[in-house]
Amino acid sequence: MKTILTALALILVLGGPALADDRLEVVCTVTDLGWLATEVGGDMVEVTVLCPGPRDPHFLPAKPSLARKLGRADLLCYTGLELEVGWLPVLMDKARNPRVRPGKPGDLDCSRALETILEVPTGTVSRAQGDVHPQGNPHYLLDPRNGVRVARLMAERMAALRPAQAAAFRRRADDLAAALATRIAAWHEQASSVAAHPLVIHTKQWEYLADWLGLDLMGAVENRPGISPSPRHVDQLVDQARSRGVHLLIAAPWNHLDVARKAADRMDATLIILPAAVQSLPTATDYITMFDVIVAELTRPTGD
């Protein structure tokens, strides 16, 4: 028994949180949040991202090694609105980290920064509608104005966790907001020509982008999220798209591109694959270049 107790004590001592430097350990679920946290925190934080850019954040395999990273976190930043519901709760249980449990200072649901949540279902919510998000559309980081709001929220939380560096966090968030404001205006003006034309999307996740740029999203190939579209729905969408002169079909890199490509061909439209997250395409290296790529692709003359 003495041997067992000694071994247990040794495990607890060795397995406890390593003596970290003074930097705040921030774990972000997705790359967009990771970039924002890095910008706000600078060298005062150590940022780890759980879901790599090229992977669909709805379906990240909940590898135990990710729980190990989460176990070291002082601050967890997640998208919320149930985007990560398929894997984050599993990692939270495995991580055994009371600092980031819901309600604790280290728990940051970034959707709380939003002024408006789009597509909050009204009436009965049913899975007959597919894999809907009952609290609203979680893809709000595709509107850069929301990126600014999230950055400010992060700064406040980091300030609360590291009061000595509060001013630095807030200053960095202000600097980021100023830099983004200039770009946001430029992107909006650059994309103004696209607003006149209806677009088709592969999966519902571009609504915040459309809301910001004034895009006319005519319909989705995958009309029920997470469910393969029926041939009848695709036929109807193709007919509608052709009658309205749709030129572009938008998809994310992780969508079923063969299905999207066939639909685009039938519509005589061009399939464009836009970065739906930072690093989801090699060209979208950060949050700013992601919108550079999105706007450039949307405004590129078709046929190029």
Binding site: I11, L12, L14, G15, A18, K63, P64, S65, A67, R68, G71, R96
Partner: peptide, 13 residues
Amino acid sequence: LAHGLPLPWYCDL
């Protein structure tokens, strides 16, 4: 009772 062991890979006892 469960606890992770301080090894370079994920190790849980």
